[in-house]
Lab assay of single mutants.
Amino acid sequence: MQRVNMIMAESPGLITICLLGYLLSAECTVFLDHENANKILNRPKRYNSGKLEEFVQGNLERECMEEKCSFEEAREVFENTERTTEFWKQYVDGDQCESNPCLNGGSCKDDINSYECWCPFGFEGKNCELDVTCNIKNGRCEQFCKNSADNKVVCSCTEGYRLAENQKSCEPAVPFPCGRVSVSQTSKLTRAETVFPDVDYVNSTEAETILDNITQSTQSFNDFTRVVGGEDAKPGQFPWQVVLNGKVDAFCGGSIVNEKWIVTAAHCVETGVKITVVAGEHNIEETEHTEQKRNVIRIIPHHNYNAAINKYNHDIALLELDEPLVLNSYVTPICIADKEYTNIFLKFGSGYVSGWGRVFHKGRSALVLQYLRVPLVDRATCLRSTKFTIYNNMFCAGFHEGGRDSCQGDSGGPHVTEVEGTSFLTGIISWGEECAMKGKYGIYTKVSRYVNWIKEKTKLT
């Protein structure tokens, strides 16, 4: 034993070699072989497995989906700052455009905790909710729209109204504003409101030439003092309507412009014939205590009207009353817009006519005020429907199939267009061939041609 100890002390290297040989010859039971080890760690190889990531292109799944990435790591994937920024906006807080917040056709661009709407022409605001041009839906104005110097929408209202708090709607500024039905039992019968379409306001006024200088022999019209197929109006439903009495009662109609003036057809009036105007009328054979009678003290036909040349060209006249009318729910003026808007309103496509005229061709006159909704007829169809001249200051309205029309005794009465609950004068009943005849239409004086003249002559002093 002493000898062994001496050998170990003198030859430590020998001992180490012996131990190493023993270990190498022993069977290893701690580690699995290569094949079995792979069965336990069965993990798919990654895209760049075996390579240094710093030297390969980034992978979106590896960089940002398996674990949260930084902007720089995302930049490695896209290799483009702009594309990385677009991805980053949604990656950080989701897609803010998912709810489609942009209105009126706006395009949404996502941002971090926010979004941006790219608005089409005519709109602005956070969600493109603000109209900035009158060309689109009248700028959301209830009545009139004008573009300011910086191309912003400025709404306005006709006389007797003021802008509401929203700067879009119009509200009454006087007790009985024009064009409004205020009798409670008839307010439910107000005709369907007309909503502004998209309009090209630059070209809204037709490029028409008034044929002022045409000389033409007097034409022989049949029954051209021209509501057939209409309905009984309720008291106060058309408070701007008046009836004219002269040699015979209810020979023509008219509309209240203001307390002192009536507008009617020029062919209705004769110099030297006494005319009485009755406002607030409903049943011409009954006294309903809503009527107001006034005498006409002055007749002003349009300066281009000449019955000797043509009885229905420039067929418009103004009547001055001896005493002002007292405005109330049964006696209310009709609204008159400017030339541009009167023309736009007419193009809405349908209007209402009213009167006490004959209820059928050569038949009896109506006792109760009649009204009828009539569609506008395109000019080409209008011209083809008659052998008589249709001037540019006239328009056609009615039904091709016949059966409904204005008729004798309705002449001078109103053709009105309702705009968001307020009625505007767009025409004056003038003439036609018979009444409600198939293929024939009622012919009306186009008020847009005469609004400046009306307003100039009827100013209240």
Rank of each mutant, 00 (worst) to 15 (best):
R3G: 07
V4Y: 03
V4N: 09
M6E: 04
E10F: 13
L14T: 03
I15K: 04
C18L: 11
Y22V: 06
L23Y: 05
S25E: 03
A26H: 01
A26M: 04
E27G: 13
V30F: 11
D33E: 03
H34V: 09
N36V: 08
K39I: 08
I40H: 14
G50E: 11
L52C: 15
G58C: 13
L60K: 14
E61L: 05
E61A: 11
K68F: 09
K68M: 13
K68I: 05
F71T: 15
E76W: 07
N80Y: 05
E82V: 15
T85Y: 03
F87N: 15
Q90A: 10
N100R: 12
N100Q: 12
P101K: 12
P101F: 08
G106F: 03
C108I: 04
N113F: 03
N113W: 04
W118Y: 06
C119Q: 03
G122D: 05
I136L: 08
K137Y: 10
N138E: 11
R140A: 14
K146I: 12
K146F: 10
N147V: 07
A149N: 09
A149P: 07
D150K: 08
V153E: 11
C157H: 00
R162G: 03
E165F: 08
K168V: 07
S169M: 11
P172Q: 09
P175D: 02
F176R: 05
G179F: 00
V181N: 06
V183Y: 10
T186D: 12
E193K: 06
F196G: 11
A207W: 12
T209F: 06
L211M: 09
I214H: 07
Q216Y: 06
V227P: 10
G229I: 11
A233E: 07
G236S: 05
Q237E: 04
F238K: 04
W240I: 00
N245T: 05
G246T: 08
N258W: 01
N258D: 03
E259Q: 03
K260Q: 04
W261T: 01
H267S: 11
V269M: 06
G272W: 07
I275G: 02
I275D: 01
A279R: 00
G280M: 02
N283V: 05
I284R: 13
E285R: 11
E286G: 10
T287R: 06
T290I: 07
N295G: 05
R298V: 02
I300F: 06
Y305Q: 02
Y305H: 07
Y305D: 01
Y305G: 02
N306K: 07
H314K: 02
A317E: 01
E320F: 01
D322I: 01
L327N: 00
S329E: 10
S329H: 05
V331L: 02
V331S: 02
T332M: 10
D338A: 08
D338T: 12
K339F: 09
Y341M: 15
I344T: 06
K347R: 10
F348A: 14
S350T: 09
S350Y: 08
Y352K: 01
S354R: 07
G355W: 14
W356F: 08
G357V: 15
G363F: 11
L367Q: 11
L367K: 07
Q370A: 07
Q370P: 04
R373P: 14
V377H: 03
D378F: 03
K387R: 05
F388A: 06
M394K: 06
A397K: 03
A397Y: 02
A397L: 01
F399R: 02
F399E: 15
E401L: 12
G403D: 15
R404S: 14
Q408Y: 10
S411V: 15
G412R: 03
T417P: 00
T422L: 06
S423N: 15
F424G: 00
L425P: 01
T426A: 01
I428S: 00
I428N: 01
E433V: 05
A436Y: 09
K438S: 14
G439W: 03
I443A: 12
K446A: 13
V447S: 03
S448V: 03
N452L: 04
K455L: 10
E456R: 04
E456W: 03
T458L: 02
T458H: 01
T461R: 04
T461V: 13
